[in-house]
Computed example of a mutant assay.
Amino acid sequence: MINKMQILSLTALGNLDAYIRYANSWPMLSAEEEKLLAERLYYNGDLDAAKTLILSHLRFVIHISRNYSGYGLPQADLIQEGNIGLMKSIRRFNPEVGVRLVSFAVHWIKSEIHEYVLRNWRIVKVATTKSQRKLFFNLRKTKQRLGWFNENELRIVAQELGVCSEDVREMECRMSAQDISFNPFPDDESSDRKLTTVMTHLRDNTSDFANGVEEDNWEMHATNKLTNALRILDKRSRHIIRARWLNENNKITLQEIANGYGISAERVRQLEKNAMKKLRTAIEA
């Protein structure tokens, strides 16, 4: 496939208006021309055909990227991400499906722009799951029409988007929140103001690191004692204890063990009882 930088450099270098004029200077392809080029790429790996398909569709990327200008992100970056989606779509386009390339590519173009917006709109991500991403972009469009939601508007939006009211309210709160620096004061040694950070005043009441370490140490200690205690048992008794108590995924019955050793289930129970007494004595010592 054509080198990405050959396309991306058009937005990274020079004037954006010059890039838009360049993109619009490429003629739009007829259905027959597009199919011929797509077949050359699909069947023969023709890179010149791929380049022509990309350049003739740059105008569509520009058009789609304008729909995302309200997020406060550079238009050139939005176009650049859309171009990546365009190239991905051309690499996957099958000319035998019977649809125009732009109809197929629009999903890939929007997908790359969506990912860019979610990565860069805020320092803290507002949407991580697929459903949250869909709600984020749909809610942006809806809020342009309704503004801030009251309870009635909240129910209407939730019904329109096919989600519950709580999800809409949570996403609205995320979108209206502002990022706050952990160090809002300038790091200037000449300043008389004493430096401090928000992190200095944070306390996590849900975590107790000391207790966690103590529990881990005790678990390791208990495991070591049990391992040493098992060594005093004979091979058969050790196997019975492991099969009956230490194998969580596949515990077996007394009868199954008895069948394996050719003895009665009652004899296995007696061996198990004696082995448990020896283990208890060894562990408590």
Rank of each mutant, 00 (worst) to 15 (best):
N15E: 14
E34M: 00
N24C: 01
A210G: 04
K134A: 08
I263F: 03
Q255M: 06
Q270F: 11
A38Q: 01
R66T: 03
D179T: 01
C173L: 15
K273H: 12
E96Y: 14
R21K: 14
E115F: 11
Q132C: 04
L78R: 10
T223R: 15
P184V: 01
M87T: 12
D46M: 06
Y22G: 08
K251M: 05
M276P: 02
R91F: 11
M1C: 11
E39P: 04
E272A: 07
I54S: 03
D46W: 05
Q159S: 14
D188R: 02
N94H: 09
R133I: 12
S9D: 13
H63N: 10
L118S: 04
Q80G: 11
R203S: 13
M5S: 13
S207G: 03
E284K: 12
S111K: 15
R92K: 15
P95F: 04
S111Q: 15
L36R: 13
S65N: 00
G260M: 09
L233Q: 00
D204S: 05
E115L: 09
E172D: 13
T227Q: 09
K51F: 07
A177P: 02
I241M: 00
Y22A: 07
F93T: 02
N83L: 03
L254E: 11
H57L: 00
V198F: 03
E166P: 00
A285P: 04
M5Q: 15
T200F: 07
S56L: 00
K51H: 08
I232W: 01
A31S: 06
L230V: 00
E34S: 01
V163I: 00
F185Q: 13
